[in-house]
Computed example of a mutant assay.
Amino acid sequence: MAIPLSRSAESARPRSAPAKDSDPLRRKKNRNRLKTLGFLSPWLIGFSVFFAYPLIATVYFSFMHYNQIQAPDFVGLKNWRYVFTQMPLFGPALWNTLWLVVVMVALRVVFGLGIGLLITKIKAGVGFFRTAFYLPYLAPPVAATVAFVFLLNPSTGPVNEVLDWFGISGPNWFNDPNWAKPSLVMLSVWGIGDLMVIFMAALLDVPKEQYEAAELDGAGAWGKFRFVTWPSITPIVMFAVVTGVVQTMQYYTQALVAGKLASGVSVGPGSVIQPGYPEHSTLTVPQLVYSMGFQNFNTGAACVLSLVLFAIAMAVTILLMRKSTGLLTAED
């Protein structure tokens, strides 16, 4: 028989805390999460619309036969086999693109850094030289290419005429397969103003006390550059190299316009020409993507080419950003 507890015993027994509808700390965390998500929403929307969805769609269409008119038809790896085994222009286009990536990016970084160093050392007329070197970068790509093709015209161009004065026989430039890509590199180096400004800002940010300490230790010009300047600007060099690789992997306008003009075809509505003149020496993978996707309506093959470009760009970027490459130190 249960013995009833007294009122005092009942009051002494521990009671569980009353259940709450929501914990204040948890509500605060949820509000912070919502605020963070709100601040990130512009980037998330842009990333989803302009990167994630196009990438997923490109992978999807790479396994489809799609002519942009009829419904997509699944064909498996047929597009991939066609690009790697049956497309005759894929090899030359890939070689030209990689050649431009290596040579163009390297020379742009070297000349941009060199001009930036030169201008930071000039005592008088800094504004004039800075403006003179930056102005070519502001020229539209089509206009700059048209001007370069005119200047380097093998028969009427002023560059070959000046070379003739010195007894030098000028090359055919954009009309010669061996000189077409170097001519494009010259055009790119001419518009070096963007990298010059970036390197100038990095060079002016190097502490002067480090130069004074290196000079007291007996370091010359090369020693100060090697042990003071270079370690300070390596992140900027990395930025220039990575962005240069990405931009050059998308190289399209200048090569296409130069090929059309050098071949004698007028640039305008309705003008159709196989890209890569002369002899496919200026053909790049982005030109091949456009030709396959919008001229031949072979969307599947164009998507495969785009994914190859994306994979190469990602691989090169990861390789460059590894600390073992020497461009980044442990502190970076």
Rank of each mutant, 00 (worst) to 15 (best):
Y53M: 01
G157S: 14
I122A: 09
F63L: 08
T85D: 14
G125R: 03
S41Q: 06
L100R: 07
L55E: 01
V49H: 04
I122W: 08
P92Y: 04
A57M: 08
Q86L: 07
L98S: 01
S62T: 04
F61H: 09
F50I: 00
S155M: 14
V49S: 00
S62M: 07
L89V: 08
N153K: 12
I45V: 05
R108E: 10
L77Q: 00
L107I: 08
W43Y: 08
A57H: 09
L98N: 03
K123Y: 12
Y134L: 06
Y60F: 11
T85F: 14
M64Y: 04
A93H: 03
L151R: 06
R81A: 10
L77A: 06
V149T: 14
N96G: 01
A57C: 04
G125N: 05
L44I: 10
R108S: 11
D164S: 10
N160T: 06
S62I: 04
G46H: 06
G170L: 02
D164K: 15
P42V: 00
V109G: 03
S169C: 01
L40K: 04
Q70T: 07
K123M: 15
V103T: 04
Y134G: 06
L77M: 10
A71V: 10
V59I: 15
F63Y: 12
G114P: 09
V83F: 03
M87K: 15
V146Q: 12
Y134C: 07
G76Q: 10
F74Q: 06
L44Y: 07
M64V: 01
V109M: 05
